[in-house]
Amino acid sequence: MRLTIKKSINDDEIINGCLSGKRIAQQALYEKYSAKMLGVCIRYLKDRDESEDVMISSIMKVFEKMDQFKREGSFEGWVRRIVINECLTYLRKNKSMFMAVDVEKIEREPNYQVISDTLVEADLLSLVQSLPTGYRTVFNLYAIEGYSHKEIAENLSISVNTSKSQLSRARVLLQHKLVEAEKILDPKLLTND
């Protein structure tokens, strides 16, 4: 049976409770962050079940490492980094990360404003998920998480140049898909350019 957690419980209370091993605090952490962290996992791993498993493992790791949290920065940011690391570990273990995929040059750039207005989060999420694993990983880390190429290279044990090329190919693939989406959504958009 799921417990309803009071909204008023804040991060400090969660952290202190988890440090004391209180079940209620652990459940509060799950209630507060599980959806957000599953949102992260699903961008990297694509598969829903795998993402849930990694999300749960990540939260267990948060409990284990709780005493290492310095309370200087954002708790959510700290949890998010743990989740991302868990995703990368899972990918390294289970997926072939880098496969060369031929990417043709784009004819034209999509209209980002129109796309932003018409496509919802779920659409963009499915576009990211459609990328090959290596491209998706680098794109997530660089474009969404804001990691530098150097950080990505260190995290994935690749060269900075590989990280850069993976990113540019990921972008081209996404641009192709956005242009295609534009055509499907409204053929008139093509004439409005």
Partner: peptide
Amino acid sequence: KHKLDQLFKNKLEQVEVTPSDAAFEKF
């Protein structure tokens, strides 16, 4: 920032996906 990156960051950085009840059971 690249326009494409910005678009995806804005839309997906805070995206939330509610876990299933089975996930809570596992937890």
